[in-house]
């Protein structure tokens, strides 16, 4: 794990360490099982097509979970994720599998973010961030916001 991030280390506009993600049909099935969201639109192409969405597409909640990973990795063990929101603005389609373990060539997504506001409230050192998932074309398909509390060097 990287060293702990402190509130003083962050400036307005500071970048959250980006995380690359590859959605595969396999990952979608794993997530369906782990989350209990068994909507067939995420593993059955004909079902998704009947909804006008071409083929099985990435669960919004999985992209939300990627954003949680982006933020919780950045803030480290001593940081606390207080709030997170996101909008599923555009649909993403997973890569197909080339073998039991490897995806075919294709799109890579990135989870990214920026600090937008630093403040102290009720004795907590807080940071607001813009966060998003962008697709292989650099389009933000899943924009959102997060608020985190970080440890401060000013406090023992």
């Amino acid at each position: 794990m990287a060293k702990q991030l402190y509130w003083e280390d962050v400036a307005d506009g500071s970048e959250l360490t980006p995380i690359p993600k590859i959605a595969t049909t396999q990952m979608l099935v794993k997530w369906a099982g782990a989350s209990g969201d068994l909507n067939p639109a995420h593993y059955e192409d004909t079902f998704a097509a009947a909804q006008g969405l071409n083929r099985a597409f990435v669960q919004g909640q999985l992209k939300r979970a990627w954003l949680v990973q982006l933020v919780t990795t950045w803030i480290g063990d001593e940081g606390t994720l207080k709030k997170l929101s996101c909008q599923f603005r555009a649909v993403d389609w997973p890569r197909f599998m080339a073998s039991l373990t490897d995806p075919k060539e294709g799109e890579t997504w990135w989870c990214k973010g920026n600090a937008t506001k630093k403040y102290v409230q009720d004795d907590e050192h807080l940071i607001d961030c813009d966060i998003w998932v962008e697709n292989g074309k650099g389009e933000k398909t899943t924009p959102g916001k997060a608020t985190v509390a970080l440890p401060s060097r000013g406090k023992s």
Partner: peptide, 23 residues
Amino acid sequence: KAAEAIGDPNPLWQDEKRARKTK
């Protein structure tokens, strides 16, 4: 299972020994 599905290696979700040392 959830952490594996996401592809999130954060020890807070999986490594009891390591997580025990945190807040």
